[in-house]
Every structure is written in structure tokens, then in C-alpha cells.
């Protein structure tokens, strides 16, 4: 009887500990995460905007950002502002690599491809046409040409698109940065149990032999 009571006491204790851990865990979701940092960047005109986040969406303040070209040469260096943002003029018309260092061994990279910076395939085609037109233009005919050139139109469309896309880009960053979901946690525990099963299976075989 006494043993039984003691046993149930222990079980109650275990249940309590379990509940406490779960509560603590759920509370912690609102807190800050610092294992990992993410950096994300997009082009707007001739400026590159970058944003740096911790996985919970908190921004990295005053973190160092370096910009490299593909050969690993450092082009420029700066620090994020209080909102985790850092913007700079495009230094070269080539692929760039942004490296974020947030201290205590936290580091992240983001690459901006050449296509994002320099005109895309369509753009270059357009440019060729306009250049072809421009070359023989005399000063007199230039003044006549007041209607929208493909160049102008492209700029206007680009600007409008960038403005519209900005919130989407920012949201994407946040989604990309956050990946601790309950599914991942449960999945991880599932993997561990599965691994245990595999190891036990093989160990059992060896034991039987």
C-alpha cells in the first residue's frame, strides 16, 4: 500500500515537472533566440538594402556587415542601424556577397546574384536597342524625342515594382529567418526515437548471436 502510494506520488511529481517544462517552453517562444542570425538583401535602384534578423524576428542592432565580391575582395564595411538595416550604393556591377557578423560566433551570408544587380536579360536587350538608337542621334533630334523612351519606362516600372514588393520582401525575410516550429521540434524528437529503434535493433541482433 505504502509502496503504491509512493509510486503514485512520484508519478504526480513527474507529471508536474513535465507540465512545468512544457509551460516554460511555450513561454519561451516569445523570447529571443540567439543561436542564429539571418541576413537578407534586395536591390532598389542603385542601392542595396539589407536586413538582419535573429530567428524570432528581432533585429540585429549594430552588427558588422562586410560586402565582398566573388573573388573574396572586401569592397566595403558597415554596421546595421537600430532596425537591423544597412543600405549601400552598389559598388560594382557583379555578384556580391554580404557577410553579417553579430558577435559570439554568429555569422550569416547572403549572396546577391549578378542578375539582380545588373540589368536582367530583358533589360540588356532593351538597352542594346536604345544604345543602337542613341548612337546616331544628333543633339537636334534628341530634343524632339520627348515621349517616353524604353529606358524611362523601365525605370518607372522598376520603381513602382520595388515599392510594391518591399513589404513582401520584408515578410519573406521574416519567414525565412524563423524556422523553429512545433512541427520541427516534434519531428526532431521523432528522429531521435527512430534512431533509438534502429540502434536497438542492431544491438539486439548482436546480443542474440
Amino acid at each position: 500500500m505504502n509502496v503504491k502510494k509512493q509510486y503514485s506520488n512520484h508519478r504526480m511529481y513527474l507529471v508536474k515537472v513535465f507540465c512545468a517544462v512544457i509551460t516554460l517552453h511555450l513561454c519561451s517562444f516569445t523570447h529571443t533566440f540567439a543561436h542564429k542570425v539571418s541576413i537578407f538583401a534586395y536591390v532598389e535602384g542603385d542601392v542595396i538594402h539589407s536586413q538582419s534578423y535573429f530567428p524570432d524576428g528581432r533585429t540585429c542592432k549594430n552588427a558588422q556587415i562586410e560586402v565582398f565580391d566573388l573573388k573574396g575582395k572586401r569592397l566595403l564595411k558597415g554596421a546595421t542601424n537600430m532596425d537591423g538595416e544597412f543600405s549601400f550604393r552598389i559598388p560594382i556591377q557583379d555578384s556580391l556577397k554580404l557577410v553579417l557578423t553579430a558577435g559570439m560566433a554568429h555569422k550569416a551570408e547572403y549572396e546577391i546574384s549578378k542578375e539582380e544587380i545588373s540589368p536582367s536579360a530583358v533589360k540588356t536587350a532593351l538597352e542594346k536597342i536604345t544604345q543602337g538608337q542613341k548612337a546616331p542621334l544628333s543633339p537636334a533630334s534628341a530634343t524632339v524625342k520627348t515621349e517616353l523612351s524604353p529606358d524611362h519606362m523601365r525605370d518607372i516600372i522598376d520603381k513602382a515594382l520595388e515599392k510594391k514588393l518591399k513589404p513582401v520582401m520584408q515578410k519573406l525575410t521574416r519567414i525565412e529567418a524563423k524556422n523553429t516550429s512545433i512541427n520541427n521540434i516534434m519531428g526532431g524528437i521523432g528522429y531521435i526515437l527512430g534512431l533509438m529503434g534502429i540502434v536497438m535493433y542492431f544491438k539486439k541482433n548482436r546480443k542474440d548471436r
Binding site: L24, H31, T32, F33, A34, M104, T180, I185, G188, I192
Partner: peptide
């Protein structure tokens, strides 16, 4: 396996202190 799971989940529990936070 149990302790491995505990370890796996434990680093999601954060204690925010000052500018940084540790788990």
C-alpha cells in the same frame, strides 16, 4: 534517446539577459 531529446529541445528554451540571450 530520452536525454538526447531533452538536449535537443532544451536549447529552444531561452533566458533573455541584457542585449543577448542564452539558452
Amino acid at each position: 534517446a530520452l536525454l538526447s531529446s531533452a538536449f535537443f529541445v532544451a536549447s529552444l528554451i531561452h533566458i533573455p539577459i541584457g542585449p543577448s540571450s542564452v539558452h
